[in-house]
Simulated assay, not measured.
Amino acid sequence: MKSAEILAKFDMVARRRVALSTERSYRSWIVQYLAFLVTAKGRAAEGSEAKMEVFLSQMAHDDYSSVSQNQAFNALLFLYRHILKVEIGDVSALRCPRKQRERYVPTQSEISAMFAHLKNTPTYNIRLLAALLYACGLRVKSGCELRIKDFDLERMVLTIHEDKGDKDRQVAIPEILLPAIRRQIARATALAQIDIDAMQPVQLPGRLDRKYPSKQFEIGWHFLFPSPHPCPHPRTKKIVRWRIGEDVIQRAIKRAAQAAGIPGKVTPHCLRHSYCSDLMDAGHSPRRVQEAMGHSDIRTTMGYARKECLDLPSPIDRLPRKSA
């Protein structure tokens, strides 16, 4: 099968099996792998497992991160299993080193200073979206994809659908954000009604628009932070109402952090880190925090706890001092 045929089949199969962001990542790695197969190293390796081993080992030699190597490995597994219909055995590639790095967790004073420099645009309520990321511990993608129906203001509950690992979870809505949420829902509802009257569909997850076509024209399914103009769906090319892009909030938070003079690299995901760490520091049960964060393993949650070593006194304090 030629490279063009493989990629065409991949595009068709991937849209039914993986998220759009995963599809783009897998496609990039598969393109690199297909280019590798026509090189001398690629042709010299015999068997699919051997070719994968050489490709992945070369990534380790080229100093790729372990995250990138794992991503490439999963992309190649998808290629062989779902596109080429070939079962892969053991692959013993040289592994990229897994580097242990400290998460940057902004303090509450830093977050407050950054929020003071966040500015809304004529199109988007940036301040509310950033506040939801911190107040509810949302991942940036989940925050951008919030829909009107996700908010139960009577019970003060927010439901996050299809979060990492394709899991749903619920978190409490802070009372302080209720007025801003109500205003944003009213704004999003008004735009949704204009779309419904014009028979302009909203983008739905997966193939839901085919299974339940009427949901494209239900107010509850419209985004809380809708895009200003309809645009082509990246897969189907159908004109739909989309939502705010992750890059919009990423740039806004970066500018606000710089304006506030925060020295660390602040991203929207750092607000999720702060949500977890602040709850742990406040003495809340790790199990409750784990459930709110959507972590599968309690060890992931405990990684956000304040380092006990920071309370250790330095032995230099006990050295005898010369009197003046």
Rank of each mutant, 00 (worst) to 15 (best):
Arg155Met: 05
His273Ser: 13
Gly283Lys: 07
Gln58Ala: 14
Met302Thr: 04
Ala44Ser: 04
Asp152Ala: 04
Val105Gly: 03
Ile249Phe: 03
Cys96Lys: 02
Thr189Cys: 14
Asn120Met: 08
Ala260Leu: 05
Ala180His: 05
Met1His: 08
Gly303Tyr: 09
Asn70Pro: 02
Glu308Ile: 11
Val13His: 01
Glu49Tyr: 00
Arg299Tyr: 10
Val67Ala: 09
Glu218Asn: 06
Gly47Tyr: 09
Phe223Gln: 09
Ser66Gln: 06
Leu56Gly: 01
Asp195Phe: 09
Val38Ala: 11
Met59Ala: 04
Arg183Ile: 03
His269Val: 05
Gly143Ile: 01
Arg17Pro: 00
Lys254His: 08
Leu310Gln: 14
His117Asn: 09
Asp63Val: 14
Ala35Pro: 00
Leu138Gln: 06
Phe73Ala: 12
Met52Val: 07
Ala292Arg: 13
Gln290Cys: 09
Ala256Asp: 01
Ala131Lys: 13
Ile298Glu: 07
Ser112Pro: 01
Gln32Thr: 02
Trp221Thr: 06
Met59Cys: 02
Phe55Ile: 06
Cys96Ala: 13
Gln200Asn: 10
Arg235Glu: 13
Glu49Cys: 07
Val140Asn: 02
Ile262Trp: 02
Asp197Ile: 02
Gly165Asp: 03
Glu5Thr: 12
Glu46Tyr: 14
Ile219Ala: 12
Ala190Pro: 00
Leu279Tyr: 05
Arg95Gln: 06
Leu153Gln: 15
Ala192Ile: 07
Ala257Asn: 07
Gln200Ser: 10
Ala50His: 03
Ser112Leu: 07
Tyr124Asn: 01
Thr107Asp: 06
Arg15Leu: 07
Thr301Arg: 08
Ala72Thr: 10
Pro268Cys: 13
Pro213Asn: 09
Glu145Trp: 02
Ala45Pro: 04
Asp168Asn: 12
Arg288Trp: 15
Ile316Val: 15
Glu87Val: 00
Gly165Leu: 03
Ala130Lys: 00
Arg183Tyr: 11
Arg139Ile: 05
Asp278Glu: 15
Pro320Gly: 15
Thr236Trp: 05
Arg207Ser: 09
Ser323Gly: 14
Asp209Ile: 03
Pro213Gly: 04
Tyr64Gly: 03
Leu76Ile: 01
Gly283Val: 15
Leu279Gln: 04
Gln193Gly: 06
Met52Phe: 06
Cys231Ala: 11
Arg139Trp: 10
Ala180Thr: 00
Pro205Asp: 13
Arg207Ile: 13
Glu145Ile: 01
Asn74Pro: 00
Ser57Trp: 07
Lys99Ile: 14
Met1Ser: 10
Arg27Pro: 05
Ala130His: 00
Met114Ala: 10
Val248Leu: 10
Pro122Thr: 12
Ile173Arg: 02
Arg24Asn: 11
Lys307His: 08
Ser3Gln: 07
Gly42Glu: 03
Leu129His: 08
Arg187Glu: 15
His222Ile: 02
Met59Thr: 01
Tyr134Asn: 03
Asp317Cys: 11
Ala260Pro: 04
Thr121Gly: 08
Pro315His: 03
Gly47Val: 11
Asn120Phe: 08
Leu178His: 06
Asp90Leu: 07
Ala305Cys: 14
Lys215Glu: 04
Asp209Cys: 08
Met293Ala: 13
Ser21Gln: 13
Val67Arg: 10
Ser3His: 10
Asp11Gln: 12
Ala305His: 09
Gln32Arg: 06
